[in-house]
Design a protein around this nucleic acid. Sequence first.
DNA 1: CCCGTCTCGTTCGGATCCGAACGAAACTCC
DNA 2: GGAGTTTCGTTCGGATCCGAACGAGACGGG
Lengths: 213, 213
Amino acid sequence: MTVTIDGVTTVLHRSGPDGEGVCVPDNCPCDDGACTLSKYVRTTAESRSEGHHTLEETESAVATMLAGMSVDMESMAAVQNIYRAANAVRKRLESSVLAPHDLTWTGWVVLWVVWIWGDIETRHVAAEAGISKGTLTGVIGTLEKRGLLKRRTHPDDARRVLVSLTPKGKKLMVVLFPKFNEEESHVTAALTAAEKASLAGTLRKVALQVEPD
Amino acid sequence: MTVTIDGVTTVLHRSGPDGEGVCVPDNCPCDDGACTLSKYVRTTAESRSEGHHTLEETESAVATMLAGMSVDMESMAAVQNIYRAANAVRKRLESSVLAPHDLTWTGWVVLWVVWIWGDIETRHVAAEAGISKGTLTGVIGTLEKRGLLKRRTHPDDARRVLVSLTPKGKKLMVVLFPKFNEEESHVTAALTAAEKASLAGTLRKVALQVEPD
DNA sequence: CCCGTCTCGTTCGGATCCGAACGAAACTCC
DNA sequence: GGAGTTTCGTTCGGATCCGAACGAGACGGG
């Protein structure tokens, strides 16, 4: 059975051990005992409604139930935790270190990249910061308006723009970096040095898998 | 020496082994051989301008140089890699799985939360998805307009709003979840099963440190 | 020298993201 | 029953985020 939604066609199949039978989307989660996807969805809802630790119990229960099946629980747990930790860390660093200086996360990242590189082309800043060129134009506009950095046309190529920190911007970075780094220590305080190193190495593997240097 | 920027005051100090002397923000990076912050900034710029692996060399060089000093390189590496990996993974999953269905990352997260919980209050969706109530109002508006979920006033408390998936929304989730999960496998393909488990566990520690359940 | 192609940054429209403020609803106390 | 307080979701203004399209600039070939 195939299903087409928004012009995209997908072949559906019951994610049971024998692979037979057909999932009926409108019935998910359904009462078919052999349908492991429905089992998974139902178990997740049950563990959540009890207000327990969200991801830990969900992952454990579903991992046992779907072992060997088509749902890759280990990868799912890894990805969900990457996203969850990144979200939590960003919010903490934003609220405790950046917001008092009226800075956003991306504003900080852009300032950091420009601080490190000095006179740098905007296309490189966008690539380093991981944002689009269009977004960078807006962020640079905001930081420029704040008097933290300045832009100038490339002497050899009028299409290109170079940015650098103003004296005010440099001063701000010297003040903020130690504070930012101190909060980085706080958010990872629960980890041993070995865990931090292992974490960084493993995440580097993931990042390089997705976007090779 | 203290410096005040935007109403926030910070005490500056040279991050050298003896802790003496004063950093002059406008001169950073400066020529003072004992100033390790300037060393760090300069080394980072140098390694980058050569187009080598960005974070690996930077971290190694600076970790050696600043060992025992005030800059916490291990925590910094951990946090930067969390953010970088999360960014890369999100972009990949968005472009390869979600965009063909005209979904954003947060739209997906909200659909996922509502799919798992069934009839759920919007304040809980916002908390689960890690976004503000104001943002959720907009995202729900978009998904409602797409015909993927519907809202109704809480029968017992007119202040509250409940959301659930429409049949079209449920069908979409059944199609998308396997694809999303398959791509989760792809983005973590470079890791062993043990690394994935260790990664998830370590990140869970970080997330719980920042936002206890 | 001119034309075609490619690159760069900006603009555009739409989506997300936030905190603060607001109106409506619920609750508690007198 | 009314007043005061708290909670909920929405609205607001500003910032970010994207891909696509555009104008300007650079380059190569004829």
